[in-house]
Design a binder for these strands. Structure first.
Length: 581
RNA sequence: GACCUGGUAGCUCAGUUGGUAGAGCACCUCCCUUUUAAGGAGGUGGUCCUGGGUUCGAGCCCCAGCCCGGUCACCA
């Protein structure tokens, strides 16, 4: 199917010129395969009879039997009239043995001498039919009788070799290349694939746990008119038909609570959330949070549920509750310690800050060396104290409970202390993994809390929280007492797979776009150089300095702006040209 | 956003006070029918991230920028 216009001759020339010698050889091999009557991209189904994993795990029952396998050829050891190669399918890798006289039907041995030895390369996808056997040195192999080309690879893969000691040589380890070309990473780095398989095991484990309890998995809007449920800068977009702004959700909390109002007893959602903030080892602009809300429960119940859930997740994904995270061994075996946040501060700073006002708290902060500024209220100060003095101590899973009210606008007031809330964060390896509340369901108090938040953030910034009037309306109809939790799934996967970077647990982490090499003509270069020396400058001045004819000038400047190398601004002072980005 | 590392062949990396651009693997040619980081002989391959500057001469020094990574800041 040809959806795009055919390549012109000159385009082909340019493309060929950009190819590396290795790529040119492969394209020539592709052509020669076709000349031999071999379709390098056949359409028909290739029926396999086994997977590599099945064979290796039940070798005795396969030995001597015929199998049909398909996969990518990862390496070759050619020895004259016989060769070994490594075949990799979705389940694993195994060796195949290829003998000239067994796979070739003609006297010249074309299939072996020409097709296999000359025209196939590492990375090609092939199908084989052959007999399972063990070599002299005892390696499980398949003796190939028939070889089928299933897909010719035109780009060379990085060559990664593993020696007898399991030591990896020339590992494909450049982070930028690995993330930009994750498909290559997945092909050559088996452990990367394992990480992502484990990620799915983790989410399946959670779903399984909830579904067995008849909790309902739901989907709520990603495009929201008011980005609520958290305080973060949202991504903004625009709906043309409604002519209104819409935001990518920063959280789904307020929508799930609406569903609890609507009469569901328990709802959960794996929510892709989006926050327009900095990126680093633990933050990606889009990330996944699992949020769960259960009616008639409180945060104490939620702690028990969380312990049970994480113990199961660890067992399902790692077959043990003891998980190595960095240098630490972390046990996900229930129960977990429960420490009120003020108690934690007392333990790690020696100061009992319960009931302290802003002034007294600032004094404590100074004494223990925590930086403060004027804008910080009681809640923020306690948060800072905990964050810098306590958090990193909690390596084993620990519920930090009973946060100050000021920090928790969606949380129900504590049943015994009106200054606190019924909230916990679960700390693991010194980081927050989950955040849960007894949800605030008093609509009048909720409105007041929102208004307090508005005051706190009302410093003329663009993050001022909107009040979601519809959410308040829903609460006014009555929401049962409810407990909710959000678990950072990316972070959980990082823990369970012992990765310290979020990019290692996302298939396609956000990256800056690749810089495309821009080709400039001589004329364009001339203009570009004048402009570079004096940007921005009046369009007419630039045109005069170029000395170009009207026609030549027009073409050149249009091409430059098309390539974003120059930009024309129409201002009150006249038409200006400046360097593009 | 600030600071620190780095960017050299398809991949992993060396590169001396600033003096002809290097290795291993991959690739090409040849030998080799149970090897396994297969082996042996020979060979091809470079925008040294980009643009300026200093210099007789820059991969190396200086300036500006781009991109990855790290640390910090930001992030209830």
């Amino acid at each position: 199917m040809y959806l795009c216009s055919p390549l012109t001759k000159s385009n082909i020339k340019i493309r060929i010129m950009q190819l590396s010698p290795l790529e040119i050889i492969r394209r020539e091999s592709l052509q020669k395969l076709r000349e031999l009557g071999i379709n390098p991209y056949p359409a028909e189904e290739f029926k396999t009879t086994a997977t590599i994993k099945e064979i290796l795990e039940n070798f005795e029952s396969f030995e001597g039997k015929e199998v049909v396998l398909a996969g990518r050829m990862m390496s070759r050891r050619i020895m004259g009239k016989a060769s070994f190669a490594e075949l990799k399918d979705a389940s694993g890798r195994m060796q195949i043995y290829i003998n000239r006289d067994e796979i070739s039907s003609d006297a010249e041995g074309t299939m072996y001498n020409t097709v296999f030895k000359k025209l196939l390369d590492m990375g090609d996808i092939i199908g084989i039919k052959g007999e399972v056997f063990k070599t002299k040195v005892g390696e499980e192999s398949v003796n190939v009788k028939e070889l089928t080309v299933l897909s010719k690879s035109l780009r060379p893969l990085p060559v990664v070799k593993t020696d007898a000691d399991g030591k990896v040589h020339d590992a494909f380890s450049d982070a930028e290349l690995r993330y930009r070309q994750r498909y290559v990473d997945l092909i050559v780095n088996d452990h990367v694939k394992e990480t992502f398989i484990k990620r799915t095991k983790i989410t399946n484990s959670i779903r399984d746990f909830f579904n067995k309890r008849d909790y309902l998995e739901v989907e709520t809007p990603i495009l929201q008119p008011i980005p609520g449920g958290a305080a973060a800068r949202p991504f903004k977009t625009h709906h043309n038909a409604l002519d209104m702004p819409l935001y990518l959700r920063i959280a789904n909390e307020l929508y799930l609570k609406r569903l609890i109002v609507g009469g569901f007893d328990a709802v959960y959602e794996f929510s892709k959330d989006f926050r327009n903030e900095g990126m680093d080892r633990t933050h990606n602009p889009e990330f996944t949070v699992m949020e769960l809300y259960v009616a008639y429960k409180d945060y104490l119940w939620m702690m028990n549920m969380t312990e049970e859930l994480l113990e199961k997740v660890a067992m399902d994904s790692n077959r043990t509750t003891e998980v190595k995270i960095g240098e630490n061994m972390v046990s996900f075996k229930a129960p977990y310690a429960r420490v009120p946040i003020l108690e934690a501060i007392k333990i790690h700073t020696g100061f009992d800050v319960a009931g302290m006002d802003e002034i007294a708290l600032k004094e404590v902060c100074k004494k223990v060396g925590v930086a403060v500024d004027e804008t910080m209220g009681v809640g923020k100060l306690i948060d800072e104290l905990f964050g810098s003095k306590c958090e990193h101590h909690y390596i084993q899973p620990t519920f930090i409970t009973d946060y100050p009210k000021e920090m928790s606008p969606l949380t129900k007031e504590h049943r015994t202390n009106p200054a606190l809330t019924e909230r916990f964060e679960l700390m693991v390896n010194g980081k927050e993994l989950a955040n849960a509340y007894s949800e605030l369901n008093d609509p009048i108090e909720q409105r007041e809390r929102f208004e307090e938040q508005l005051k706190l953030t009302e410093k003329g910034d663009d993050e001022a929280m909107f009040i979601d009037q519809d959410f308040l309306r829903a609460l006014e109809y009555g929401m049962p007492p409810t407990s909710g939790i959000g678990i950072g799934i990316d972070r959980l996967v990082m823990f369970m797979t012992n990765n310290s970077s979020i990019q290692e647990v996302l298939f396609f982490p956000q990256m800056r776009p690749e810089k495309k090499a821009v080709e400039m003509s001589e004329d364009e270069k001339a203009i570009f150089h004048i402009l570079k020396a004096n940007s921005p400058m009046l369009l007419n001045d630039l045109k005069t300095q170029s000395g170009f004819s009207n026609k030549k000038w027009d073409k050149t400047i249009k091409d430059l702006t098309k390539k974003s190398l120059a930009k024309i601004n129409n201002t009150e002072e006249g038409l200006f040209v400046e360097l593009g980005k």
